[in-house]
Design a protein around this nucleic acid. Sequence first.
DNA 1: TCTAAGTGCGCG
DNA 2: AAAGCGCGCACTTAGA
Length: 565
Amino acid sequence: MASDTVVVGRTAAGRMALVGLGDHSAASEVDTAALAAAVAARENDGDVRWVWADTAAVYPRLLDAGVRVARAWDLRLVHAILHHARTVTDDHGLRSSTGWDADAAAPVDGDTLFDLGDAASGIPETVEAAVAEYHRQTAAIASSEAPGALRLLCAAESAGALIAVELHTAGVPWSRAAHEHLLERELGARRGGGLPARIDQTAAVVRAALDDPAASLDSQPRLLRSLHRVGLMVQSTSRWELAEHDHPAVAPLIAYKKLMRLYTANGWAWLDEWVRDDRFRPVYVPAGVVTGRWASSGGGALQIPRSLRTAVRADPGWTLVTADVAQLEPRVLAAMARDTALAEAASGRDLYAGIVERGAVASRAEAKLAMLGAMYGATTGESGRLLPRLRRTFPRAMQLVDDAARTGEDGGVVQTWLGRTSPAAGESWRALQSLASDAAASGVDETRARRSARDRGRFTRNFVVQGTAAEWALAWLADLRARLAALPEVDATRAAPASGPVFQRRPHLAFFLHDEIVVHTPLEHADAVADAVRESAASAGRLLFGTFPIDFPLDLRIGETAEKG
DNA sequence: TCTAAGTGCGCG
DNA sequence: AAAGCGCGCACTTAGA
């Protein structure tokens, strides 16, 4: 078994070049059509880390050709991390404009999305440029004050890039029939020309209550005027404010909004556009959020209503293993701050119950409110009122987030546990602050500047926690992916072809949402998958936080489970 | 007729 | 209208 790093890029002649960087470095060239076979051969030959410009551009074709790779290095994503990383002391030219700082190619419809060599991204893709960039990146990491952590982050980010493509390719097993059944039950039958019957009926009830048969329910300004005419003096048309009023129009209006939301966001049109072959294939965007969380593009993958998860159904002979982490962010905070008191409160399954047991607050609801307030920067209301009690009981954890907030308010940058750095303060932000600090500044300027400083403080406060939680989740995913790949395949008669050639015969990740995963697995491997999910969570905790005693308990379920709890 | 901004709501 | 973070999407209106 040879361990090697192989850089993949284009040649001037438009072929694909594979350049080995190891002891037995060698270069070879193949036509684009033969890339998958060349990668497969090298992958089977030994332990390889594949270095390429953009996983989202290269990997879909490999998967479609039946080729999975174990390890990768995504030059675009790693560049984005290192470009801003505060701990890097020598950037080796990484911070100058080289084309690698281009944004990801905007996802587009149709076949061009994952076309190899799509030049829209602006990323240099020649193999020479890729080799040079890889050397810059490894050198920059080596110069970091915490090279191990940064290297881990970059490897985890790259593993995430592989997983994002794999999730798209495999898709979420989605029962069109179950989805349609739910739509008909909630909305009534689909009607070609107009709205489903139930929506029409509900709208009629609302209009009757508003004493206006022509009232517009979809235009916020006009609806607001209609409400005012019947004495409902609301300032917005949002559900929470409507619910505070007692009027015959309120209940049907809230019902109308709920039905319309289902119809427009996840109705038949969504089903037609996003579900093929009983698979929902969202486009995941690794690091699409500044904190390092993933975003999604199209299909609203990260906003699927929980009520709709009844449509998530395993293929025949397969099942689903679903797991989410209980209170990931406060656990991560406890470990980052080395706050043993908070870690002890977290030692049971329910961190909030643990906080109550330690006497900080009186109820679980208060504990949750206070903890969220601490991580989001609440200043007023019940959440703000509870914060001093949390500060007394968990001073180290609270100091970590308070420090992050102060740094942000002062215009500084903060870092996650592994070294992802928050964005620098923008030019307009700085201008506002310096304007307000001028002796001749007006009270209005000062107020605006203070508010903007506090806004930024809340962002950096949350950045350290949300970003580190995202790192933990990446580590969890990456470790789980490797464990799943080691489980045995089922025979071809048991295959789930819609999951594609790489995954149709083995357990595979099917969905990921910040702190939650779904694995689609042949029935006989469900218990092994559940073990792998738990072991990878424990492994992720050790990888990030070493021996610090913090648990990451999972709510884990095997089988068709639509909703939580 | 196009785009940008506002509103509201789904998810963590 | 959120108080208190991070997103994406659908719909509307205002403005070019």
